[in-house]
């Protein structure tokens, strides 16, 4: 069989996981909409929503990993993250998307689109940092 393939993805991406929005409303992870993130961030005293545009997607250092380079916010801060190919990001107006949607669906039963260069993902920053 294949070598151990640890699933390092957090449990809340599993279909059916219950997510609490900032106003207390409960939703399943697969039912979340862009507005849920925007509205939750609006009433959060600590978090601010930001848009992160996918600029590059490259192979990561381990077989199931990818390096994704984002341009974040109006200042276009360059941020690079290494995640497993099945890690889902929430794309504005589109929903969950990952570099390998088939694997995300297989592992977590979470319907995903293919994450592509140019997609604009929901991200968060801390309001209080100056």
């Amino acid at each position: 069989s294949s070598p151990s393939s640890p699933v390092a993805l957090p449990p809340f991406f599993m279909r059916g996981s219950i997510i609490q929005l900032a106003d207390g409303e409960l939703k399943r992870v697969e039912d979340l909409k862009t507005e849920d993130f925007i509205q939750s961030a609006e009433i959060s005293s600590e978090l601010k929503i930001d848009s992160s545009t996918v600029e590059r997607i490259d192979c990561g250092q381990s077989p199931n990993a990818v390096l994704i380079q984002f341009s974040v916010g109006e200042l276009k801060a360059q941020v690079c993250v290494e995640v497993l190919v099945e890690y889902p990001f929430f794309v504005f107006g589109q929903g969950w998307s990952s570099c390998c949607p088939d694997r995300t669906t297989q592992l977590f039963e979470l319907s995903c689109a293919k994450l592509c260069v140019g997609d604009v993902c929901v991200s968060l920053t801390l309001r209080s940092l100056r």
Binding site: Q20, V72, S123, L126, R130
Partner: peptide
Amino acid sequence: NVEPRSVPVFPWHSLVPFLAPTQSD
């Protein structure tokens, strides 16, 4: 007696990676 199983509830912000430190506004 059967105790009700608690269902984990995750905060919305868990789903979003903190991608960047806020730069000065």
